[in-house]
Design a protein around this nucleic acid. Structure first.
Lengths: 208, 208
DNA sequence: GTCTATAGAAGGATAGAC
DNA sequence: GTCTATCCTTCTATAGAC
């Protein structure tokens, strides 16, 4: 959870790091300002001098964590999917990336926090969705559309196809992870799972 | 949120109803025992006499809500899916049921609470999953398997197929709803969405 | 900028009267 | 069984010294 937000002051950096760690691990309500101050080895007064209020600090942390996380994922996937001209291979590589992304602890943590706090912080959910899943799918459906026009995928609505592929890859994993249940995360299990998703998708959208 | 748990005492009933309403709406941490007592028009001492502790009350409410909700859904789907011998029609009817189920406020509320509290109450997540999604899919994959053996669906792993169909139906809806974003819920939009899922599924698993 | 000390409010839980 | 009144803890936020 290091260096979510870069800053000049070391105390400020310590505060942001501590807040990120604790908020991501336990959500908003269960983290006290005392705990953040202790974790950051800073007094509460210093904490308040830097962050304003608990709400403000929380919003800052979540927004920045979302942003950095999603941008990183975006770049990864973009290079991954552009690297091959074989549709099946590209989908497989993309699917594995998505699955690994879902399995990362930080991803789970962000999602859990957003779910838990979406009533108290509605604007947070929207910005999470826009900068994450929506941005992601806009890019992916663009790629799908190009494959359709190139004749490598059956013609159809690229947005629907993109949503369906992601849904197949997500499968039950997302549900299980979101409520803290274990998921097989060895390479073989992931490849098998993604293989099933790609098989089904290509049966429906392939041109072979 | 009425009558989650039947009981003889009216005060006890009032406590359970109030707790269910508030816990489902705001989660565990943001609901005080004072608030529950006020909502139930009962003193705090009476509240504690009936429920033991806040944790105990919460566990009771969530488990009972899950159970009653899931059992009801189960029965509905079972009758729905058995009512026709046409695979496509059965899947369509089933998909619409699932979608409507996902859109119900109580469904969303339970899921949000389980996500938010799965760290504090791990056994709650397991019982939610077992009595809900897992039980559900066990039944559905049984049906899929029978269709496969009858030659109405292509042979394959019924569990994978069941998971994939549910994933297609869930699509983006579950994600959006879980973080409090709006979802089109008019009949036409639902039918179109389910129709897309059924089309893709039958292209991959149909025998036509 | 940074600390100690504290104000002021709210929460979980219980004692004791009826 | 039910209520009122209260204890003790914890929380957010700030005042005031350095």
């Amino acid at each position: 959870m290091s260096a979510i937000l870069e800053t000049e002051s070391p105390k400020r950096q310590a505060v942001l790091d501590a807040a990120a760690t604790l908020f991501m691990a336990h959500g908003y309500g269960d983290v006290s300002m005392d705990a953040i101050a202790r974790e950051a080895s800073v007094s509460k007064a210093t904490l308040y001098a830097h962050c304003g209020s608990k709400v403000q600090l929380f919003a800052t942390i979540i927004n920045e964590t979302c942003r950095s996380k999603m941008v990183a994922a975006d770049v990864l996937v973009e290079t991954e999917i552009a690297s091959t001209s074989d549709v099946g291979e590209a989908l497989r590589a993309f699917g594995i990336r998505v699955t690994q992304f879902l399995l990362e602890p930080t991803t789970q943590a962000i999602y859990r926090v957003v779910v838990a706090e979406c009533v108290r912080f509605p604007e947070l959910a929207q910005s999470f969705y826009d900068s994450g899943p929506a941005h992601f799918r806009a890019f992916f459906s663009g790629w799908i559309g190009r494959q359709m026009r190139a004749g490598r995928l059956r013609e159809g609505d690229p947005t629907v196809a993109a949503e369906q592929f992601v849904a197949l890859v997500r499968g039950d994993i997302h549900l299980r992870i979101s409520i803290g249940l274990s998921v097989p995360h060895d390479a073989a299990a992931i490849e098998r799972h993604v293989g099933d998703a790609v098989d089904t998708f290509l049966r429906a959208f392939g041109t072979g």
